[in-house]
Design a protein around this nucleic acid. Structure first.
Lengths: 283, 283
DNA sequence: TATCACCTGTAATTAAATTACATTATAGTC
DNA sequence: GACTATAATGTAATTTAATTACAGGTGATA
C-alpha cells in the first residue's frame, strides 16, 4: 500500500468489497472520528456484522490488525482535506478564517499530490534544460506568478525573462525561435489574448509549457500542459486564492527539477547571485 | 486539552512527570512511529516500567486509555511538520521531488497555524479598513508577492497600489499621510532599503503593517508585525520557496478579513470588477 | 518517630481481538 | 435445475492486551 492513506485505499476498494465488508466500510465512513475510538464489538454492531468480520476486513485492506487499522485511520483523519470547513462565512472571527484559509491551502496542495504526473514534469524540466532562453508570461492574477517564476528560474544558468504586458508578450513570442521555451500561466486557459500569444509562440517554433486548466484551448496548444488546479475554484467569479498556491508549488517543483538536472556545476554561479545582494542587509 | 496535539501536550508536561512517567515519555519520543504500534507490554519493557504504568501515564495525560493515546499520537504524527523528509537530494526522481515539495509547502502552512495571532490579524484588518489608501511594497523575491497582494486587496473598495521599484517606494512613502496604510513585505526584515522606506512611512504618519521576520528591525518599526515564516528557511542563502507560500497565505487571510469586514455592501462593486474582464475569454 | 500522600510493581480480572470451526451463500459446470 | 467447490460469514473458543486491585516502598511533613 506504500504511502497511500488508508482512507484513500478504502475508497478505492469500495467496489471490490463483499456485502459485509461494504457495510463495515460505510459504517466507518459515516463517522470516521468516532470509528477510531470503537472496539471491534462497537463497530460490528453498527455495521450489523459479526465481530470477527472487523479483523478480517482490516486484513483485507492490508493492515496487520484492527488496532493497526485504527492508527492508520487516525493518521488519515489528521490529514484529511476538508473542503467543507474551508468556506468562509460572514460571521467568522479571525481565529476561524485563519484556520480555514490555512486548511484550504493545505487541501489544495493535497489535491494535486496525485494529479501531477512525474513524467510530465520531467518532460517540462528537460525542455527547460535544453533551452537557450526561457520566457515566462502571465497576465491579471497570473502576472505575479510569472514574476515569481522568473525569480526562481533565472538562477539556473539559462537567461530567463518575464513579461506581463500583453503587447510585449506578443512581440517577444514573435521574436523567438526554436532555442526558446515559453512558460505560459493562465488559470482557465481560455483568455483570448493568451491563446493568441500561444499561437505566436508555436509559429516561432519555440517550445510551449502551459500551466493551465486541463483540456482548455491553451493546454491543447502546449507541448507540455500541467494542471493549474483551476477545477478547484472558479477563478472567473471568485478571487483566485488556492489556485495560485497550487501553481506556485508547481513553480517550486519545476525549479527543483531544473536545479537537480543542472547538478552542482552551477554552484559558483548560484553563489555569485547570492553574493550580488551582499551589503543590502543589516547584520 | 482541546485542540492541542498530544505530542505538544506531552512535551509541555515533561518537567512535571514522575520518574517512571518520564521514562515512558522518552521511550515514546525516541521513536513515535514505532510507539503507535506497540502493546502496553512492549512499551513498558522499552521504558523499563510495569505494564500498568502505561495506562496510568495515558490517564495522566488526559487520555481515556492507551488505545485512545495511540490514536491521538497517530494524529500528531500525521500532522507533524517533517522538515527532514522535505530536503531534496541529488538523486531524487520527479515523483519524489514532487512529493517533497508538496509536503514542504503543506508543512510550512501547518507551521503558521498556531503562530498567527487572531488579534494581530484583526488589528491589521481594522487598519486596512479605516484607510483611504493602501500601498503595498516588496522587492526582490517579495516583489511578486506585493503585486499578488494588490491583485487581492484592490477589490474591496479602497484604492490600492503596489510598487516594486525602491525609488518609487521612497517617493510614494514620502507623499503619504495619516490616511494611508502601507504593507511592506520583507522576508528577513533586514533589507536596508526597506528599513529606510519604513522610516519614511513612519515620518509621513501613515500606518505600517510589516509581513516580516519576528523581532527584525523592520518588525520593530511596524504598527502591526506579522511573521513571514522566515525562521523556516534561510532566504538569504536558499531560493525562497516555502516562505512565500506562507506569506501568500497571509495575504489570503488579510484579504478574507477585509472582505468580511466590508460585508456585502461591496457586492455590486465586486461584480463590476469581475464584469470588466467579460469578453476576454473564450466561452 | 509516626503519619500521610504519592509512586510503583505484582497479581488478578476484564475487555478486546483473533482464531477455529461450522454454516450459509454464491458462482461455475454439467 | 442440480451439484460441487469456493468464498463469505457467524458462533464459540481462545489468546492477547489493557486495566483494576492490592500491597509495599519512598519522601515529605507535623
Amino acid at each position: 500500500m506504500g504511502d497511500m492513506s488508508i482512507l484513500d485505499h478504502l475508497q478505492k476498494e469500495m467496489s471490490s468489497l463483499s456485502k459485509a465488508e461494504l457495510s463495515i466500510a460505510k459504517a466507518i465512513l459515516s463517522d470516521v472520528d468516532a470509528a477510531v475510538q470503537m472496539t471491534t464489538a462497537d463497530l460490528a454492531k453498527l455495521a450489523k456484522v459479526s465481530d470477527p468480520m472487523i479483523s478480517r476486513f482490516c486484513r483485507t485492506l492490508g493492515c496487520k490488525s484492527f488496532p493497526d487499522f485504527k492508527v492508520q485511520l487516525a493518521k488519515s483523519v489528521a490529514t484529511l482535506p476538508s473542503f467543507i470547513s474551508s468556506a468562509v462565512s460572514p460571521g467568522d472571527d479571525a481565529a476561524l478564517y485563519i484556520e480555514k484559509r490555512i486548511s484550504a491551502n493545505q487541501s489544495a496542495l493535497e489535491y494535486i499530490r496525485g494529479r501531477l504526473e512525474p513524467q510530465v514534469i520531467e518532460t517540462a524540466v528537460k525542455l527547460l534544460q535544453k533551452s537557450k532562453r526561457i520566457e515566462i508570461f502571465g497576465m491579471g492574477a497570473s502576472a505575479a506568478i510569472a514574476q515569481d517564476a522568473q525569480d526562481k528560474l533565472f538562477r539556473f544558468g539559462i537567461p530567463t525573462g518575464a513579461y506581463v504586458d500583453h503587447l510585449m508578450q506578443r512581440m517577444v513570442a514573435a521574436a523567438a525561435n526554436e532555442d526558446s521555451t515559453f512558460i505560459l500561466f493562465s488559470f482557465t486557459g481560455r483568455t483570448k489574448e493568451m491563446i493568441k500569444i500561444a499561437h505566436i509562440v508555436r509559429e516561432s517554433n519555440a517550445k510551449l509549457i502551459a500551466i493551465t486548466h486541463p483540456g482548455s484551448p491553451l493546454s491543447k496548444l502546449a507541448h507540455v500542459s500541467i494542471t493549474s488546479g483551476d477545477e478547484l475554484e472558479d477563478t472567473t467569479i471568485y478571487v483566485p486564492m488556492t489556485v495560485r498556491i497550487i501553481v506556485l508549488t508547481i513553480v517550486d517543483i519545476l525549479a527543483t527539477g531544473l536545479a537537480l538536472a543542472q547538478g552542482n556545476r552551477l554552484d559558483k554561479h548560484l553563489k555569485r547571485i547570492t553574493n550580488s545582494v551582499d551589503g543590502t542587509k543589516i547584520e
